[in-house]
């Protein structure tokens, strides 16, 4: 089953970098790619909300790269895009190519889906490890008065 499009780029970024690059470059070599906006790469302010009052604040600057392009292959074409917390414009360009290829259901779509599944699994593993690490820091707050009663 194909996951939501929103999660493709994040999943592919977590998959094996070599395989992602090889597949994207293979697709790109047999298709034409034109930018729909200038690729942007740089620092942007990350907004967050504090958990008490819910007020927005700027957590800090993060590297961000964004690519928007159109991919045209003999079997069809589609617009693709990717935005990632990264300073690697080449990677984000490749993710945008894969995004367009999967959106256009090119013959390589099953291979891309395999990579996405790999990436999702890798992310799930990282998240599980983080949850475990977080779990160890969990504190049970007990009221002293309860025992007194």
């Amino acid at each position: 089953m194909r996951p939501e499009r929103e999660s493709w780029a994040a999943a592919l970024a977590a998959a094996d970098g070599g395989k992602v690059a090889a597949l994207a470059d293979r697709i790109r070599d047999r298709a034409t790619v034109e930018p729909l906006a200038p690729p942007r790469e740089g620092l942007m302010l990350m907004q967050a909300r504090d958990s008490v009052a819910g007020a927005a604040f700027h957590l800090g600057e993060i590297p961000m790269a964004r690519v928007h392009l159109r991919l045209t292959a003999p079997e069809g074409g589609a617009d693709g895009g990717a935005a990632l917390m990264s300073d690697d414009l080449a990677l984000v360009t490749r993710l945008a190519v894969l995004d367009a290829a999967l959106g256009a259901d090119l013959p390589e779509a099953p291979e891309i889906e395999v990579l996405i599944a790999e990436g999702l699994a890798a992310r799930a593993e990282v998240q599980a490890q983080r949850a475990l690490a977080l779990d160890r820091t969990r504190v049970d707050f007990q009221l002293l008065s309860e025992e007194d009663q």
Partner: peptide, 13 residues
């Protein structure tokens, strides 16, 4: 990570 800085260090924005 081995990625190159753009010309003149600062990003285009």
């Amino acid at each position: 990570d081995g990625a190159e800085y753009g010309f003149a260090f600062l990003d285009e924005d």
